[in-house]
């Protein structure tokens, strides 16, 4: 039931017109989505938008002098980091009706969670001797518009790191390595890590382009996916404590292995699959290829 009143005159909303934000992903430009799957801290957000401002009408409606400075500014707030910052600032001194191009980058390292991006028209500096009702303090907001993008949520992600196998004890020329450590009861997120060899260009590039893969990248990713899935199942089957009637806690390595196993083998028992694995390992490998739909399955 309540209304909020600013302590100064504000212009009509029709005096500012803003086009939607555009997000630049590599070469491509898309309208700012509600959420950005696959974002991580290493991805900076490059944003563009056009804003038309009728400076003359605004100054008049706010009882500001004709030459009063105005500025467009972009301020963001991230729920993930709890930080707030400014990414763009453009003064509109003395101009009438004009189109302004905002082009900015928000550092991935500073944000996370939900990112709100406020586009603001403000009085950029304190003004002396203006009308009592006019906005005169630096920072007075005359128009604002908020956009939001969800960068992080609660979805599962597979832990991956691109590293140089050179100085490691892993073979230099290998392309990837799935590291599995810990007991079946340890936390899955802490027990698995897919290491990708940065020296192997084909694979390293495929991983960096996974959001927008070329066909070659898709094939590489599909092959790695199938191999990782198989490695996980084989690892699980090699463990004595991976059995049908085991009861793994939530989010443990055991529960994860069991889920992958079920994706591959449906209702078949672990015991049965383990036996088959001993009898005809090559056939099992082929079955698993089919189960993950390697290279798009039926294509």
């Amino acid at each position: 039931m309540s209304r909020i009143a600013y302590p100064y005159l504000r212009p009509a909303s029709s005096t500012v017109d803003a086009q939607p934000w555009r997000l630049l992903l590599g070469e491509e430009e898309v309208e700012l989505p509600e959420s950005l799957d696959g974002w991580d801290y290493n991805l900076d957000l490059r944003l563009r938008r056009e804003v038309q401002v009728d400076g003359e009408a605004i100054r008049e409606q706010c009882r500001l002098p004709a030459g009063a400075p105005l500025a467009l500014s972009v301020v963001w707030y991230s729920t993930g980091s709890g930080l707030r910052g400014r990414s763009a600032f453009e003064r509109l001194d003395g101009r009438g009706y004009a189109t302004h191009h905002l082009d900015l980058t928000i550092a991935g390292a500073e944000v996370g969670g939900v990112l709100s991006i406020d586009t603001l028209l403000v009085v950029p500096e304190a003004l002396a001797e203006v009308d009592a009702l006019a906005p005169h303090r630096a920072g007075s907001m005359l128009w604002e518009h908020r956009s939001e993008i969800r960068l992080q949520g609660g979805a599962s992600q597979f832990p991956i790191a691109v590293v140089d196998f050179g100085p490691s004890t892993l073979p230099d020329t290998a392309a990837w390595h799935l590291e599995v450590s810990g007991s079946m009861d340890s936390a899955a997120m802490g027990s698995l890590l897919l290491l990708v060899n940065e020296r192997n260009k084909a694979v390293a590039e495929a991983f960096s382009r996974a959001g927008k893969p070329r066909q070659a990248d898709s094939l590489v990713l599909s092959a790695v996916y199938a191999d990782v899935a198989r490695t996980m199942v084989e690892h699980a089957l090699s463990r004595e404590d991976f059995v049908d009637d085991a009861n793994y806690g939530e989010e443990t390595l055991g529960a994860l292995m069991l889920d992958v196993f079920r994706q591959m083998f449906g209702a078949r028992t672990i015991k049965d699959v383990r036996l088959r694995m001993q009898d005809s390992p090559s056939l099992m490998a082929t079955e698993m290829q089919a189960a993950v739909g390697i290279f798009g399955g039926d294509s």
Partner: peptide
């Protein structure tokens, strides 16, 4: 290297584990 997308690609192998990721 931003690997979020790659990580999502593999996420089916990680179902049921709450991520902190993108």
């Amino acid at each position: 290297v931003a690997l979020g997308a790659a990580s999502n690609y593999f996420s089916r192998l990680m179902r049921g584990s709450t991520g902190f990721g993108g």
